[in-house]
Every structure is written in C-alpha cells, then in structure tokens.
C-alpha cells in the first residue's frame, strides 16, 4: 500500500520533469533507494512496475539503485554497514549509532527523448 503511494509520487515527478524539458518520452529512470529510507525497495519496484502502465514511464527502463545503510557508533566511533536502523555496533554492541548514509529516496536521473 505504502509503496504504491510512493510509486505514484515518482510517476508524477517524472511527468513534471518530462514536461519541463519538453520531452516526448522517458527511456530510462534511475531511482536511489537507501536501505534505511523506510522504503522497501522490492515492494516499491513491484508497485512501480504495476502502476507505470499508461503513464509517462510505461516504456522506460527502471533502474533501482540500492544504497547500503551506513552508521557511525556514538560510543566507539566505528563506521559500519547498517543493515537496519536498529543495528547495534559490531565492535562494542552499543546503540544507537549516527546514521551517515542509506536514508536516500530520490530520483537520480532521467533519460528522455
């Protein structure tokens, strides 16, 4: 459900950008989904695939790039890959850590014609 609304946001954004650039069609869209963005990348992709029909993205290649979560432990300063927001520091088992990457949810680029 949630991912459906987000997929619609993407389609609207692509439509606006296409209009702005006076593009007839979009061939490719690259979307970055961080592991800590709160967006489930697989569900989002399926939702987008379902919803692109009859939209500006109907024939576009959809690239979804996932960025790993990155955290820095507040206690020992270790930087590590955070698989999920609640992850404890692998070195000292402390929590929480400062999130330093993986919260992105954005359209990186479009290829238009």
């Amino acid at each position: 459900m949630h991912e459906f609304s987000l997929a619609i946001e993407v389609i609207n954004l692509a439509q606006r950008e296409a209009e702005k650039n006076m593009a007839g069609s979009i061939q490719e869209i690259t979307i970055e989904v961080g592991d800590l963005s709160g967006v489930e990348a697989d569900a989002f992709e399926s939702a987008l695939e379902l919803l692109v029909k009859d939209s500006i993205l109907e024939n576009a290649d959809i690239n979804i790039v996932r960025t790993p979560g990155k955290g820095k432990c507040n206690a020992c300063n270790l930087e590590f890959e955070m698989k999920y927001r609640m992850a404890t520091c692998p070195q000292c088992q402390c929590f929480p850590s400062e999130i330093s990457g993986g919260e992105e949810f954005r359209v990186v680029s479009l290829v238009v014609e």
Partner: peptide, 23 residues
C-alpha cells in the same frame, strides 16, 4: 539544480531530487 546534457535526440537529466520533496 536540474542539469541537462544533450546526447543527440536523447537527453540525460540529472536530478537527484528527493521523491518526497513536493510533499
């Protein structure tokens, strides 16, 4: 900033725009 590159008829638009930015 929207950033546009022309490749013949094709254009690469680099956006880096937050999907929830409108909201």
């Amino acid at each position: 900033f929207t950033h546009t590159h022309d490749h013949g008829a094709k254009k690469v638009i680099s956006l880096n725009v937050d999907i929830l930015s409108d909201n």
